[in-house]
């Protein structure tokens, strides 16, 4: 996809009078030299893989380090015992985010979206929403194109890896992608989708990447929860007509700027932040082979 900005993408929609997801799909298919059918078949495969990954969660899974596993099951069962403060729907979203991120940490098959560490955000928003509103898969694929289009512009203008831009670039980007997608599913227009994306990214700006012992486990698993819940609150704001004062493209540029100002210790090196806390250091000594 050759769009360099969200604005350019929205302009193309106005000019061509086609749905935004279709413009994103066609633009990408043209660039990569595949047909629209091939593109859709691939997206459908990805969606199938995401759903399969959700089904294949196992309560008993634990990561090699033993740090994570089982929380997704705890959440799923807990919300049956007592009404969650956030309400049932958000309860399911939290459970799904934890489960997918735990599956990743435990070497199960997942779909990177946009990264493996942030793979729980998008499915945690999309899967519960689909089952609550009985949305056909066809429409889910359309929402995935919108998510991917947003993600690609973030990747082009800024970055999507914790090593480059901190966790705001991973969980923040995933959250913006999910927010834009779910607004589409809820019947919002493209401008509202992008307002939601902007708000979601803004609200996670500055988030550092500080994985304990350098492993994609702590705080990564629970960060997927804030990515998903943040996407939903941003989507609700946008659907009520609330706008981001700072345009989406400028938010993305600010994210890049913030990322480049983060010290290396806060960019996936497993040194600063939570990784550098006394407990983080103790865990690191325990789980990493001594050299």
């Amino acid at each position: 996809m050759s769009f360099q900005s969200i604005q350019e993408m929205l302009n193309a929609e106005k000019q061509q009078g086609l749905p935004l997801w279709q413009i994103i799909m066609e633009e990408d298919a043209r660039e990569t030299g595949i047909s629209a059918e091939e593109s859709k078949a691939r997206m459908s495969q990805l969606w199938g893989a995401m759903r399969a990954a959700s089904r294949e969660y196992e309560d008993s899974l634990r990561s090699t380090s033993g740090l994570v596993g089982g929380d997704g099951a705890r959440m799923r069962d807990g919300i049956k015992q007592h009404e969650p403060i956030c309400g049932e729907f958000i309860g399911l979203v939290i459970a799904q985010a934890l489960q997918m991120a735990e599956s990743n940490a435990c070497m199960k098959r997942i779909v990177a979206a946009p990264t493996a560490g942030s793979c729980g955000v998008l499915p945690a928003v999309l899967l519960p929403y689909q089952s609550k509103h009985n949305i056909p898969d066809e429409r889910m694929l359309e929402s995935l194109y919108i998510a991917a289009g947003v993600g690609q512009i973030i990747a082009t203008r800024a970055c999507i890896s914790g090593a480059e831009g901190g966790c705001q670039a991973e969980i923040g980007s995933a959250s913006a992608m999910a927010a834009a997608a779910v607004v589409y599913l809820a019947g919002g227009d493209s401008d509202q989708s992008m307002q939601a994306g902007a708000i979601a990214l803004k609200n996670l700006l500055g988030l550092v990447c500080d994985p304990v012992a350098g492993l994609v486990e702590v705080p990564c698993v629970k960060r997927n929860v804030i990515g998903a819940v943040n996407a939903l609150s941003a989507a609700d704001m946008a659907l009520c007509g609330i706008q981001s004062v700072i345009p989406f493209d400028e938010v993305i540029d600010a994210m890049r700027e913030v990322g480049s100002q983060m010290s290396p210790g806060l960019r996936e090196t497993g040194e600063g932040g939570l990784a550098g806390s006394p407990t983080g250091i103790k865990i690191k000594k325990r789980v990493l082979p001594q050299r």
Binding site: M1, L46, A112, A116, G117, Q152, T156
Partner: peptide, 21 residues
């Protein structure tokens, strides 16, 4: 970079650089 670099790859976790790569 294309759309399927953003969504995807389908991979066994936990890390695209340390595991998939």
């Amino acid at each position: 970079m294309n759309l399927f670099d953003i969504l995807g790859p389908v991979m066994v976790g936990p890390s695209s650089s340390h595991t998939a790569g």
